[in-house]
Computed example of a mutant assay.
Amino acid sequence: MSESESGREAVAVVLDFLPHGRADDDRPRYQKEPLAYALTESDFRLLELTLERDGGIGIGDSVTVEPPEDREGIEKVREIEYDDLSAAAQSELEHAVVDVVERDERRFVDFYNDAQPITLRLHQLNLLPGIGKKLRNNVLEARKRQPFESFDDLEDRVAGLHNPEDVLVERIIEEIRADDLKYRTFARRE
């Protein structure tokens, strides 16, 4: 269910702003609409935003993309793939993901608290880079005693788990970039 279907507002962070549209658009400059590339904060979808001429948007800005009646300065929203992003947007992506994870630490710490088995042999925690059977079991044992309160708490209580925030960021970026992943936990695709 998307944010608009559930009635919630969807916010995206701007990765790149192209005041004169895409370079590969052969139309004269005055006919091109300004564009921006953005990443939704709730489910890490990549978007191309067609902007109104006087829309003042900059890299790093947060913009409302859903519901449509709450959009300011945005004419059209289209979901895109990673390869459709500009080079500048691709280079900004990791910074944006880190910012989202830092701003909403509770949500991502709760992933470690709430992760469940996917199949008899595969657990959601095993999808994270560097987390094998032993480290997964360490996380599961520590959370049985008491839920994790923060990334620092997680790192302090789970032997062998270093930079739990960076591990999540790496997985989120992998889900955004890859077309052929069987399991997605963070980045939704239409």
Rank of each mutant, 00 (worst) to 15 (best):
M1E: 14
E3Y: 10
S4H: 07
S4V: 15
E5I: 07
S6P: 01
E9N: 04
E9F: 03
E9V: 15
A10Q: 11
V11H: 06
V13L: 03
V14A: 07
L15I: 04
F17V: 14
L18N: 02
H20T: 10
H20P: 00
D26K: 14
D26S: 12
E33R: 10
P34A: 11
L35M: 08
A38S: 12
A38H: 07
T40W: 08
T40R: 03
E41T: 09
S42Q: 14
L46I: 12
L46E: 04
T50F: 11
L51T: 07
E52K: 07
R53I: 02
D54T: 15
D54S: 15
I59T: 14
I59M: 11
S62P: 04
E66T: 04
E69F: 11
R71Q: 00
E72H: 09
K76M: 13
K76W: 10
V77K: 02
R78A: 10
I80Y: 14
I80P: 12
Y82P: 02
D84K: 13
L85S: 09
L85C: 07
A87V: 10
A88P: 02
A89I: 09
S91P: 06
E92N: 11
L93E: 03
E94Y: 06
H95T: 06
H95D: 13
A96D: 06
V100D: 09
V100R: 12
V101S: 13
R103V: 03
D104F: 11
E105L: 08
E105S: 13
E105K: 04
E105R: 08
R106M: 11
D110E: 15
N113E: 12
N113P: 15
P117H: 11
I118T: 01
T119E: 01
T119S: 06
R121V: 08
H123Y: 07
L128Y: 06
I131Y: 05
K133G: 14
K134A: 12
K134D: 12
L135V: 00
N137K: 08
A142K: 10
R143G: 11
R145S: 13
R145N: 07
F148I: 12
E149L: 11
S150G: 04
S150A: 02
F151K: 07
E155R: 02
V158C: 01
V158W: 01
A159N: 04
G160E: 05
L161E: 01
N163H: 08
E165C: 05
E165A: 05
D166P: 01
V167N: 04
V167S: 08
V167P: 05
V169N: 09
E170H: 00
R171K: 06
I172T: 06
I172W: 01
I176V: 15
R177T: 07
D180F: 09
Y183M: 05
F186R: 01
F186L: 06
A187H: 09
